[in-house]
Design a protein around this nucleic acid. Sequence first.
DNA 1: GCCAACGTTGGC
DNA 2: GCCAACGTTGGC
Length: 150
Amino acid sequence: MAYWLMKSEPHAFSFDDLKKVRRSSWDGVRNYQARNMMRDEMRKGDLAFFYHSNCKEPGIAGIVKICKEGYPDTIEFGRKGKQVKPNKDIENPTWFMVDVQYQRKLKRAISLQEMKSHAALADMPLVRRGNRLSVLPVTEQEWEFILGLE
DNA sequence: GCCAACGTTGGC
DNA sequence: GCCAACGTTGGC
């Protein structure tokens, strides 16, 4: 089983929003690296941190489970409500998404600031400046360490 | 709201 | 295939 981190802007789609609907497609990702991970590497049952980005307190809010493996992203309007580039050829799709399922909220949110303060997390691309990937792999050690901070 | 960092686009 | 211009991300 693998671990991941998935970013979402809470004003558009927050962890509490996912809690309400329980399950959602992770649509609208238009980045090739993130696409490759969703299409080729994410497996049903993998766990991911739900990360709030571009907000007052960026950080990890909770845990989700991958409940459907990569399939073509047919949407034109994403969770964020804004238009995204559609798949030009649906027979040969460029963009993929997975489905995630609400798992649990962390006992307390783990902020980016806190994660930056721990040497054990220094290798996470997340804590590096300028990182823009919206889907990131997390090692088992990092996963356990973050859960230990709860 | 600012702006650095990065990915993508498109002219050549 | 290079690279400047442009658009977007996301912390601050």
